[in-house]
Design a protein around this nucleic acid. Structure first.
Lengths: 216, 216
DNA sequence: GAAGGTCGGTGATAGCCTCTCACCAGACGT
DNA sequence: ACGTCTGGTGAGAGGCTATCACCGACCTTC
């Protein structure tokens, strides 16, 4: 959400207001969820009246798109930074959970139920796959676990377009994929509150899954 | 959605209209998602005007609650029926995916991002745990896999309130739990459309996970 | 069979939302 | 100093949830 310090005063002002709008939007999302995002409410809080926001964003969808973009970028950066620090998959798993718990609604905005009429623009899909690239990089650096599924590997060998030009062999592909889906399974149920009345600690389940994934 | 055939004509009529409302609601949810559910639109389609629906449901939330209740019951019944037919965990996994794909929005209504201000009433939580009971029953009948996580088992041994009075030993508890979260991980990402541009078949991933869970 | 209560439906209305429009003022570039 | 472009405004269309007063038709009870 870096408000560019460069450009004409007009441009600086514009960037500043856009950032303020996004700040308020995140605040509102964090408390009430993405589907409760109201441009009117944001405008009211900022101190301008309704339609003014349309000078900055074409509409609710464009604002949400922008937030999704920022969130993807932030998650990708977070994971990449950990990977650059030499983290293994277990480290990434820990970072992922930390990022999600830091702002649950932000995680759900990316990986939860899609907003009704909303269609993800191509460039957000691009950033989303950048996250997979980080996973693949780190997974490739580790010895894939022995518990690999032969038929899935065979399928992925022929359907690896999502891995872009990544050189990883099929077992690494499936390992990264399963890493993602298993951790998301625990995380999303936890964030959606499905564990709240069950009386156990989701963290225990999560770390157990992370450990099973990374072979202790 | 059984419209009770009993009672006074008034009661029969009332049940009939309630069912018609719910039918239209499901139709609308199936196409546009739960958050796009509009009482006005339902009324229009049924042929009555707006506020009439409030004679049948206290509001949008109560209607959604009713739908959630029905969906939980339907899923529980489906899984129970399979279990009664002697299905193992692999069979339940298959049934779960079939049920989810049959009406993706229905699955997401139960396990997706919670609707903003909506709080699940106690009795739906009850039905949700009935589903866990089915999983525990079937899991207990199978030899738990060797790949059990000791620390998770230890934790669950002391935090098993969610299993009600189920006698299953900790490895079965963790097995059922992991069964749920792993399959949900794949399913929810698939239904939310996160695999659509990735070029592989989610079914392959799902069955691989189901197989890994049930030890081939 | 008439009287009265209850139930299901209606239009009007308040208050929220998104988004468009015409208009205006002030800042900016020339 | 003047025109243009930008950012702000109020009004308003059309959608939503939800409440209200009202009314007609049915059902019960006498």
């Amino acid at each position: 959400m870096a408000g560019a310090e460069t450009g004409t005063p007009r441009e600086r002002y514009r960037a500043q207001v856009r950032d303020e709008i996004k700040r308020q939007a995140w605040e509102q999302i964090a408390t009430a969820g993405a589907s409760a995002l109201s441009l009117n409410a944001i405008a009211r809080r900022i101190g301008m009246s309704g339609p003014a926001l349309y000078r900055y964003f074409a509409g609710r969808d464009e604002l949400i798109t922008e937030l999704v973009r920022d969130a993807y970028r932030d998650l990708a950066d977070t994971l990449r930074a950990r990977a650059a620090d030499g983290a293994d998959l277990a480290g990434l798993a820990h970072a992922l959970r930390g990022w999600a718990l830091e702002d649950p609604q932000r995680y759900l905005l990316l990986y939860g139920t899609p907003v009704p009429g909303y269609e993800a623009p191509p460039d957000t899909v691009e950033t989303a796959s950048a996250i997979m690239t980080v996973l693949l990089d780190v997974a490739a650096a580790e010895r894939p676990p022995t518990t690999t599924a032969a038929s899935l590997d065979a399928h992925l060998a022929g359907h690896r377009s999502w891995a872009r030009e990544h050189e990883a062999p099929p077992p690494v592909l499936s390992h990264a994929l399963v890493f993602w889906t298993r951790l998301h399974g625990v995380l999303s149920l936890e964030l959606a509150g499905h564990f709240t009345d069950m009386g156990f600690d989701p963290a225990e389940l999560y770390t157990a899954e992370a450990r099973a994934l990374t072979g202790r």
